[in-house]
């Protein structure tokens, strides 16, 4: 029994990492928190749902549209964030909170408050592997999550833009001294973040019900994993996702689904209590 808890925890955790990547990247490069992250994700899911439902488009072809919508919105977000005054971290929270409200109401207006799910029947079938039942949905989710993470890893390691972005995330001042356009990298981070959100959104719509206020839960997951990982560590994000996924599936197994929401809260508050100066660890001299 525990093996299947473990497997579903890893699958869930990989997916959680996938949905936090955009948030973490934007935070790392620009030091702003995008509290509208979950709403963008849900909106990308709605776009996929709408194309799938209204035009019968295969799920695979909905990804480009979701990416385009996420890119447009992230561009607006980036423009707004560039207007922020100090303290930027805190102000970005308040502004993006406002954007989250705007998006929630926009989605309520466009898609109503009904619960929606992108149903792909094949994903619910499955097979047995050494007595562990795996659904094709789980396998696809794990494979796609790991694929996107791997692509991001290659991008960050082996392209000029990726290297510049990593340098910006690790040390903004040093990066700008080395001739990297730091604010330009912020725009790039929003762009890549948007692509990641656009890829994660339709998947989210396949395994979670979509409704206008589903966003904050996803945002909380992203915050938790990002703060758990610390800044600029892709491996930390994967580990954070797995820890969260495993803790959630163990909690659901032991105490029931209604306690699941508490898991990310407790992990987040614990990490913050251990690192009260925040994950940047700046110590004022």
């Amino acid at each position: 029994m525990w093996t299947s808890v473990f497997v579903s925890g890893i699958v869930l955790g990989s997916f959680y990492t996938l949905i936090s990547l955009g948030f973490a990247l934007i935070f790392g490069a620009t030091h702003t928190f995008n509290l509208a992250h979950g709403e963008l994700l849900v909106l990308a899911g709605y776009v996929a749902y709408w194309l799938w439902k209204a035009f019968g488009l295969s799920l695979l072809f909905t990804f480009p549209a979701a990416v385009v919508v996420a890119l447009l919105l992230c561009f607006v977000l980036q423009r707004l964030f560039s207007l922020l005054s100090e303290p930027r971290e805190l102000n970005s929270i308040v502004v993006s909170f406002g954007i989250a409200i705007l998006l929630q109401n926009g989605m309520l207006f466009c898609f109503s408050g009904d619960y929606r799910l992108i149903r792909v029947p094949v994903l619910n079938q499955g097979f047995h592997l050494h007595q562990i039942y795996l659904s094709y949905g789980q396998v696809a989710l794990l494979a796609l999550s790991l694929l996107v993470i791997a692509l991001l890893y290659l991008l960050m390691r082996h392209t000029y833009v990726g290297k510049a972005l990593r340098a910006t995330i690790q040390d903004r001042e040093a990066a700008s001294l080395a001739g990297i356009n730091v604010s330009g990298m912020g725009v790039v981070a929003f762009g890549i973040g948007a692509v990641l959100i656009g890829l994660a959104g339709p998947l989210y719509g396949c395994i979670h019900y979509l409704y206008p206020t589903a966003g904050p839960q996803a945002t909380l997951l992203a915050i938790t994993i990002t703060i758990f990982a610390g800044i600029g560590r892709l491996r930390g994000l994967i580990l954070g996702g797995w820890v969260l996924g495993l803790a959630e599936s163990a909690t659901v197994f032991l105490w029931g689904a209604s306690w699941r929401e508490l898991v990310s809260t407790i992990i987040l508050l614990t990490v913050l209590a251990l690192r009260p100066h925040g994950i940047l660890g700046r110590d004022e001299r």
Partner: peptide
Amino acid sequence: LICLRLRGAYFALATLAFVEIPKV
């Protein structure tokens, strides 16, 4: 006790998460 050691953005995030405790 949990959140006041934090400042600024991190305090805000911690309070946002804290609501889940009494709610759940």
